[in-house]
Structures are given as C-alpha cells and as structure tokens.
Amino acid sequence: MHWHLDVTFKEDANKTIDKRAAENLNIIRKWCISILKIIEIFRPKLSMKKKRFVISMNPAEFLEQVLAF
C-alpha cells in the first residue's frame, strides 16, 4: 500500500509537521485509495493516478459513484 500512496498522492513529499495532522491525512489517503481500487471509470485497467485525475476534472459526474461506497 505504501507504493500506491507514494505514487498516487506523493506521500513521501508531505511536509506536515503536526503529528496528529499527518496521521489524519494518512487515514484520508488510505480511504481514498480503497475507493479508487473499487471504482471503475471508462476502462477497468485504468491506473489509480489516472482515475484520480479523471475524477478531479469533472467531480460532479463521479460524485454519486464515489459516495456510493
């Protein structure tokens, strides 16, 4: 999972100083990774980084699908 977090969210570049904030961000990122694994957008073999990009370009279109999980 660490590799996915690093590639998809660039977690190693995170400079959060507050320990509790860093833990909270980590939990949010892991939750997002689990949603991205489940969701199928256009093609079943789309990478998580590309899924994240596609959702960010038109969030209203995918909001219902993302929140359904």
Rank of each mutant, 00 (worst) to 15 (best):
M1R: 01
M1F: 03
H2Q: 02
H4Y: 03
L5P: 00
L5G: 08
D6G: 00
D6V: 03
D6F: 02
V7G: 00
V7I: 05
V7D: 00
F9Y: 07
F9E: 01
F9H: 01
E11H: 04
E11P: 00
E11S: 09
A13Q: 09
N14M: 03
N14W: 04
T16C: 04
T16K: 00
I17Q: 02
D18F: 00
D18N: 06
K19Q: 09
K19C: 01
R20T: 10
R20Y: 05
A21S: 08
E23N: 08
N24P: 01
N24F: 08
I28P: 06
I28F: 13
I28M: 13
I28E: 13
R29M: 12
R29A: 11
K30A: 15
C32E: 06
C32N: 08
I33S: 08
I33F: 11
S34T: 10
S34M: 07
I35V: 09
K37S: 07
I38V: 12
I39W: 04
E40K: 11
E40H: 09
E40M: 07
I41Y: 04
I41H: 03
F42V: 08
F42H: 08
R43S: 15
P44V: 11
K45W: 10
K45Y: 12
K45M: 04
L46Y: 10
S47M: 05
M48G: 07
M48C: 07
K49N: 06
K50N: 08
K50G: 00
K51D: 10
R52D: 02
R52L: 15
I55A: 11
M57D: 09
P59Y: 14
E61I: 06
E61N: 10
E61Q: 12
F62E: 06
L63Q: 14
L63Y: 15
Q65W: 08
V66Y: 09
V66D: 02
L67S: 13
A68G: 07
F69E: 14
F69M: 13
F69N: 14
